[in-house]
């Protein structure tokens, strides 16, 4: 069964990069442009894995992750945080919010697929 990945990033470039890498690896990709949008898309597509950026307008990555984790329907979905910040404090905050794992930008497709494999059943 094709797995669906939701990517949440305000940068079109990044969404395109993710789409290219994920589609190339056989994933079905759905996209959202910020956290709020992410929550909408989430309910429409029920993804198997979520990849989200941190810095986004409206609802940032932290808020988005927290919102997913409080929802009984979605809280078991693995969330990978995608960010350039290797800063331990930010990563820690993302983890506290409920992030399953992280990918440091810039990523290559292997790294990305590797991270998904590690968190997705």
């Amino acid at each position: 069964m094709t797995r669906t990945v939701l990517t949440v990033d305000d940068s079109r470039t990044m969404r395109d990069m993710l789409r290219m890498a994920l589609a190339g690896a056989g994933f079905n990709v759905v996209e959202a442009v910020d956290g709020e949008h992410g929550l909408e898309v989430l309910s429409a597509h029920r993804p198997d894995v979520i990849i989200t950026d941190i810095n986004m307008p409206k609802l940032d990555g932290f808020g988005f992750i927290e919102a997913v984790r409080v929802d009984d329907d979605y809280r078991a979905i693995p969330i990978l945080v995608l960010t350039t910040e290797s800063d331990p404090a930010k990563k820690q905050r993302a983890r506290e919010a409920g992030a399953t794992g992280w990918i440091v930008k810039p990523f290559n497709p292997e790294k990305l697929v590797d991270a998904i494999r590690r968190v997705a059943a």
Binding site: A67, V70, G98
Partner: peptide, 8 residues
Amino acid sequence: VEAAKAAA
């Protein structure tokens, strides 16, 4: 995370 839920 209640606040976040509100946002959600």
